[in-house]
């Protein structure tokens, strides 16, 4: 078992088989630096719980294909990314820090899927992006590729 500590001082015990999906921790274990608790100063307990949930489900990914659990795993992944934007970004940042490639892919893909085909207005609202472009600058971008701003697939709803 490996002990992980979140930035709000909560400790979590995780099986080594699960935690080595993180390249960062795998390297630490290999280098013998993981004898006691591993502090994770960038990750809060709420996010760490999510990450551990993912790691536990994805132990022995290779075996899933043999035992026919692929669909189960797919369903888990779909459910897993069903979270708010802020939470999603927290998990992405944690996955990036811990270097968990599969989790990073899953969450970035989810973010991209939510963003694609959205209108500019919808994305601004979803991600709370402040528009710092002047009207002229914005018009110039639109004039460059007006076709990118038209089309039946463009979705103005916020979710």
């Amino acid at each position: 078992m490996v002990k992980l500590k979140s930035n709000d001082d909560k400790e979590f015990e995780v099986e080594e088989a699960a935690v080595i999906q993180s390249e960062m921790i795998k390297n630490m274990i290999e280098d013998g630096c993981a004898t006691s608790v591993i502090p994770l100063p960038n990750i809060d307990s709420k996010t760490l719980i999510k990450v551990i949930e993912y790691l536990n489900k994805h132990i022995n990914m290779g075996k899933a294909a043999e035992t026919g659990e692929e669909d189960d795993l797919k369903e888990f992944d779909e459910q897993f990314v069903n979270m708010g934007w802020e939470e999603l970004f927290d998990v992405i940042m944690a996955a990036n820090y811990l270097n968990i490639h599969e989790l990073m892919e899953l969450c970035c893909q989810s973010a991209a899927d939510r963003l694609k085909n959205k209108s500019v207005r919808a994305v601004r609202e979803m991600l709370k992006i402040t528009n710092d472009l002047t009207e002229e600058e914005e018009q110039e971008i639109i004039n460059d590729a007006p076709w990118a701003f038209e089309g039946p697939e463009i979705d103005d709803t916020v979710n």
Partner: peptide
């Protein structure tokens, strides 16, 4: 291309 309009 559309997202260029989001911010600088």
């Amino acid at each position: 291309l559309r997202f260029k309009c989001l911010s600088k």
